[in-house]
Design a protein around this nucleic acid. Structure first.
Lengths: 155, 155
DNA sequence: TTTTTTGCAAAGATTTTGCACCTTA
DNA sequence: TAAGGTGCAAAATCTTTGCAAAAAA
C-alpha cells in the first residue's frame, strides 16, 4: 500500500511546515492547532466554521478555540475562505499547504470538485499591470451542470 | 446632463426586466422587491446582508423581508453572492442585470474594483468538456496590492 | 517562570420561523 | 377573492469576548 504511505509522508511534511510557520512567528505549537489543521487538510472540501466546530467537538476542542485558530490561520495565509453554494463560506488550506487549484460547482446538486488547470495568469497580468495592481493570488469558480445532473431530467 | 438621463433610462430598463422575470414565474411585484433591487443595482459594491438590512430600514422594510427577497433573487439568478475580504459575503446583481465582470481586491486596504476583461472561457471549455461539465457562469477574483498600498510602507 | 493559548460562559450578532394581516393580480 | 407577501416578535444559530486556569517555550 504505497499510496497510503505517500499520503502519510505528505501529511507529515505539511505539519512540519505548519510548525515552522508558527515558530518563526513566535507563536506556539499546540495540539489544538495541529488537530484543526489536520481536519482541514485531510478533508476534500472547504469546511464552514460551524461544521468544523462540530467535527472537532469529539476531539474536545472548544468552539472559541476553533474560531480563534481559524482567524490565525487565515491571517498567516495557511488557509483561505472560499464561497460555497448558497452563500456559505468554507475554509481550506492554500498553497503550499495545498495544491494550487480552483473550483467547479454543479448548479443543480451543489457538488464541488477541484480544477487544477489554470492559464489565466497572463490575462491577469495583461489587465492588471496597466493599473499598477500587483496580483498575489486569484480564485476562479465555475458554476454549471455536472454530467449526472444533465441526464436526470433536471428540475 | 445626458449621462444622468442615460443612467435613469438604464435603471428603468433593468426594473422592467425584473418585473417581467417575477411575473413569468407567477411571482408578485411589490414595492419592497423593487426597492431592494434598486438598492443593490445602484450601489457600486456587493452588499452584505446586514448592511442591506440597515440601508432599507429608512424605507420601512423589515429585516425578514430583506432576507427572504435576497433568497428569492438569488434563486432566480437576479443577484449572486460574492466573497468580500475577511470572509464576508456580499450580494450584487448578475448579468443581464449587471455587466459581466470580475473582482480585484487589495490585500492591504481591502478596496474592491471591477475587472471587465475576461478571456478565460476557452480555458474553461478546454478543461471542462472532457469531464462533461457544462459551464453556466464563472467568477474570477484576484487579490493583490493596489498602487496606493504599494507606495505606503505597507504594514 | 513568563507568555501565550485554551475553556468556559455570557453577551452580542445574525438568520430563521410561525402566524396574523395586508396586497397583488 | 384567492394566492402570495410582509411585519412582528420570538427562537435558533452563529460569532465574539473577558477572564481564570492550563500549557508551551
Amino acid at each position: 500500500m504505497s499510496s497510503v504511505n505517500e499520503a502519510k509522508v505528505r501529511q507529515e511534511g505539511l505539519e512540519a511546515m505548519l510548525i515552522h510557520r508558527l515558530r518563526e512567528g513566535g507563536l506556539r505549537v499546540t495540539p489544538e492547532r495541529l488537530t484543526i489543521f489536520r481536519e482541514l487538510s485531510q478533508t476534500r472540501h472547504p469546511l464552514p466554521k460551524p461544521e468544523l466546530v462540530e467535527r472537532l467537538k469529539s476531539a474536545g476542542i472548544n468552539q472559541a478555540t476553533v474560531y480563534r485558530v481559524l482567524d490565525l490561520f487565515t491571517a498567516l495565509k495557511i488557509v483561505q475562505a472560499v464561497l460555497l453554494p448558497h452563500g456559505v463560506v468554507g475554509y481550506e488550506p492554500v498553497p503550499p499547504f495545498r495544491d494550487h487549484h480552483h473550483h467547479i460547482v454543479c448548479a443543480s446538486c451543489g457538488t464541488m470538485a477541484d480544477l487544477y488547470e489554470c492559464d489565466i495568469d497572463q490575462v491577469i497580468q495583461h489587465d492588471l499591470q496597466p493599473i499598477g495592481f500587483i496580483p498575489i493570488s486569484h480564485a476562479l469558480e465555475v458554476v454549471g451542470l455536472c454530467r449526472a445532473c444533465q441526464s436526470s431530467a433536471s428540475h
